[in-house]
């Protein structure tokens, strides 16, 4: 929860940068995606398509790097702690979160008053963050599947047949963008609901004590 310190050990500089890259790419992807979906003003299609591709490649490389980095970059694994360990610990189940998933849900639905004990990332948070990884790759896959030069490759045409053609794939691609948008909204909201300290550390790399 929020009544704790936000130290740089929680978000080492390299992850602040990858987070920035994610944010910028997501904004570019969403904006250019909406434009490609419906060109709401004229004169931008070529740029929008270029932007969509560049941002996609960057975010995929960034994500892949982020996964690898999890195995050697050390970060805090507990709330408000300067004690560091390999980042992958944050990805795996942690003792502090055991039996807490249901309690976390109860907390957010106001069925309990006290905040729940958790590691740096709570159970729900961890699941949501982990889910974005395959979703991002899947989004790239659906994008390639509706992209002329690649759609006839076996790996993509198989997927097209499975979902019933490019139109359905396009709808899936479109809806998944909304999944990312909703994720981002909830993510920003929950991160900053108590105070803006989490934003200070992730964007400005500015530490705050409780």
């Amino acid at each position: 929860m929020s009544g704790h310190a936000h130290y740089r050990e929680a978000h080492p500089l390299v992850f602040v940068i990858t987070h920035y890259i994610n944010l910028i790419c997501m904004i570019m992807l969403a904006f250019s995606g909406f434009y490609i979906h419906f060109p709401f003003f004229n004169g931008f299609m070529g740029v929008a398509r270029g932007m969509h591709f560049v941002a996609m490649y960057v975010i995929i490389i960034n994500l892949t790097y982020r996964i690898i980095a999890a195995f050697f970059v050390k970060t805090a694994t507990q709330l408000g702690s300067r004690e560091v360990d390999t980042d992958i610990k944050n990805w795996l189940p942690q003792e502090e979160n055991k039996h807490q998933l249901f309690e976390t849900v109860k907390y957010y639905l106001f069925f309990r008053k006290e905040g729940v004990i958790s590691a740096k990332y709570g159970s729900l948070q961890k699941i949501a963050y982990l889910a974005t990884i395959p979703l991002t790759y899947l989004q790239a896959y659906t994008g390639f599947a509706i992209y002329g030069p690649t759609m006839n490759m076996g790996i993509f045409s198989g997927g097209l047949d499975m979902v019933g053609g490019p139109m359905n794939m396009r709808i899936i691609h479109y809806f998944m963008m909304w999944v990312f948008i909703v994720f981002t909204m909830i993510h920003a909201y929950l991160a900053n609901i108590y105070n803006l300290n989490p934003s200070k550390i992730i964007f400005l790399w500015k530490e705050t004590d409780h």
């Binding site: 929860m1 009544g3 309690e103 309990r112 008053k113 006290e114 729940v116 108590y194 105070n195 409780h210």
Partner: peptide
């Protein structure tokens, strides 16, 4: 400052 924290897990 957030909610008062539990001292032990409900479980």
């Amino acid at each position: 400052d957030g909610p008062p924290m539990e001292t032990a897990k409900a479980y």
